[in-house]
Amino acid sequence: VIAMPSVRKYAREKGVDIRLVQGTGKNGRVLKEDIDAFLAGGA
């Protein structure tokens, strides 16, 4: 999974398994917005 360390930390704090999140950034990078969208109700 491609993600910046700050995004990985954010996901950990929110209790999200970053491997389950679909990245929308360049080359499938997971963004902070992707974590929020995942929490809001889905992949």
Rank of each mutant, 00 (worst) to 15 (best):
M4D: 15
D36H: 04
R29V: 08
T24M: 05
Q22R: 15
I18S: 01
R19Q: 10
E13G: 08
T24L: 04
G42P: 14
V21L: 07
T24S: 13
I18D: 01
I35K: 00
R12W: 15
V16D: 00
A40K: 13
A11S: 06
K32L: 11
I2S: 09
P5E: 15
G28Q: 06
V16M: 03
G23Y: 02
A11G: 04
I2Q: 09
E33V: 12
V16Q: 01
G15L: 07
N27C: 07
S6L: 09
G25L: 02
Y10I: 03
V21M: 04
V30I: 13
D34Y: 01
I2M: 06
I18H: 03
S6H: 12
I35V: 11
N27R: 09
F38E: 03
G23L: 02
K32P: 06
A3Q: 06
I35G: 00
R29L: 11
K9N: 11
G23N: 03
D17W: 04
L31D: 05
R29I: 09
T24Y: 03
S6D: 14
Y10M: 03
G25K: 03
A40Q: 13
D34N: 06
K32Y: 09
S6A: 13
K26N: 10
R19F: 09
D34Q: 01
M4L: 15
K14W: 07
L39P: 04
R19T: 12
K32C: 04
G42R: 07
G28N: 08
V16I: 10
G23K: 03
K9C: 07
A43I: 13
V30S: 01
V1W: 04
V16S: 01
A3K: 04
G25W: 02
R19N: 12
G41Q: 14
I18V: 07
P5M: 11
R29T: 10
V7M: 04
A37E: 09
G25P: 01
G42V: 15
V16K: 01
A37D: 10
D36F: 04
G41S: 14
L31N: 08
A11I: 02
Y10P: 01
F38W: 12
G41V: 13
V16R: 00
I18Y: 05
L39E: 05
M4P: 11
D36C: 06
K32M: 12
L20T: 07
V16F: 02
A11M: 01
G15F: 07
R12C: 12
K32A: 07
I2C: 05
R8G: 05
A37M: 12
L31H: 08
D17H: 05
N27W: 11
E13T: 09
M4H: 15
K9Y: 08
Q22S: 13
I2L: 10
F38R: 04
A37T: 12
K32N: 06
K14G: 03
A43M: 14
Y10R: 02
D34T: 01
G42D: 12
G28P: 02
K32S: 06
E33W: 10
R29K: 09
